[in-house]
Amino acid sequence: MLKNILKKEVGMRNLIITNLLLLLILFTVWADDNLKEKNEVEKVNHIFELYYNQKFQECMDYCWQVINQDVDNSAAYVFYFSSAYQLDKLQEVINDLDNKYISFIQNFNSTKKNEIIEAQKEYQILTLLNGYSNIFLYFTSSNGNYYLDEGIDTLRKSLFFPVSFSSVYTGLSIAYFEKKLNEKAISMINKALNINPSDPIALEYFAKLQNNLGNYQQTISRLKNYTYIKYPDMLYQLGYAYERNGQYDEALKTYLLAYQCDPNLLGQGFISLVRVGDIYLYIKNDKEKAIYYYQQILKILPDSLVAKTKIEEAKNYNPKEENKKNNDKTKNEKK
């Protein structure tokens, strides 16, 4: 009897110890994942801070540093080329990358024939840079569709890397989105976010797709917990989803956050301020606040025709007259 009791106690103690060890392992994995995500967010937020404060050379240098440390950072690829473009160095940078790629291939073929080229970190970096450069040329070149197809072909080669990178799927999702291949774009975005749930470029394109399809709640559900990422173009998409969903206070808060992240109106900070003014004017009937936010645009962009037109519209706006027009229109439609 006593032996049976002792056996049960030992068995229970071992079970408790085993469960505690499992919990410790799970906690360690969770802590490691959280630390990794925190480090990634710090990197991308620093990229955004440099770029949107017009420190383009610093941003370009930092992106290059990040890319060489971490192959899998789509924001670093995007803003490396964005910074080069702002500095009027885009073609110079692309020519330099082409030379590095040719040099690498020649060196590899002469010294490392028996190794797998896709496993080489330098090859992975140069291939991804090549793919993203073609996508960037799509937006800036008159021969855009050619470069978009080239970008897709290059990034598809990256699928044969021995490690799956979210930046590969993010790049492909951008290209498929621009080609209006929505199903392929959604598939690539989901794969990117499965690898890196806080990839800001993938989150932006996820929201663009869902918003285009009218799935505003999908955008809100996915992005609402990532407002600590200081990427104005992503935040704008979330604000737009809130607005279209009738959640105007949340939309205002998110649009203003996008503007705060883009004080020089290089990205979607501009349209975010326009939307803030429009909500105050047409939804909240507050002309003074609407004009105030339109005027913030003119402080940065004094020649903005959009802002000047919006201010005139706001000055002449009469909510009662607008309501009467809408009511008359509704009556005529019913006849």
Rank of each mutant, 00 (worst) to 15 (best):
Q217R: 13
Q218E: 15
T219L: 06
S221K: 15
R222Y: 07
L223W: 04
L223P: 08
L223R: 09
L223M: 08
N225I: 08
Y226T: 13
Y226R: 08
Y226K: 12
Y228Q: 12
Y228P: 01
I229R: 02
I229K: 01
K230E: 10
K230N: 13
Y231T: 07
P232K: 06
D233F: 04
D233K: 07
M234D: 08
L235F: 06
Q237E: 15
G239M: 05
G239P: 05
Y240D: 07
Y240M: 11
E243D: 12
E243G: 05
R244A: 04
N245Q: 10
N245R: 04
Y248R: 07
D249P: 00
E250W: 09
A251R: 02
A251N: 05
L252F: 02
L252D: 01
L252E: 00
L252V: 01
Y255A: 01
L256R: 07
L257A: 05
A258T: 02
A258I: 02
Y259I: 00
Q260F: 09
Q260S: 14
C261L: 06
C261M: 13
N264D: 03
L266Y: 03
G267I: 06
G267W: 00
G269P: 01
G269I: 07
F270H: 06
I271Q: 08
S272M: 08
S272R: 02
S272Y: 02
S272A: 15
L273V: 06
R275K: 14
R275S: 10
R275N: 14
R275H: 11
G277K: 00
D278L: 05
Y280N: 02
L281Q: 01
L281H: 05
Y282E: 08
I283A: 00
K284M: 09
K284F: 13
K287A: 09
K289H: 09
K289I: 01
A290F: 05
I291S: 02
Y293P: 00
Y294A: 00
Q295I: 03
Q295N: 15
Q295A: 05
I297F: 05
L298C: 10
K299Y: 03
K299V: 07
K299T: 06
K299W: 00
I300W: 01
I300K: 13
L301G: 03
P302E: 00
L305P: 06
V306N: 03
I311T: 03
E313Q: 15
N316M: 11
N316L: 13
N316I: 10
Y317H: 12
N318S: 13
N318T: 10
N318F: 10
P319W: 09
P319C: 08
K320F: 08
K320I: 12
E321W: 09
E321G: 11
E322K: 14
E322D: 14
N323T: 13
K324Q: 11
K325R: 13
K325V: 12
N326W: 11
N326L: 15
N327V: 15
N327W: 11
D328W: 11
K329F: 15
T330Y: 13
K331C: 06
N332P: 01
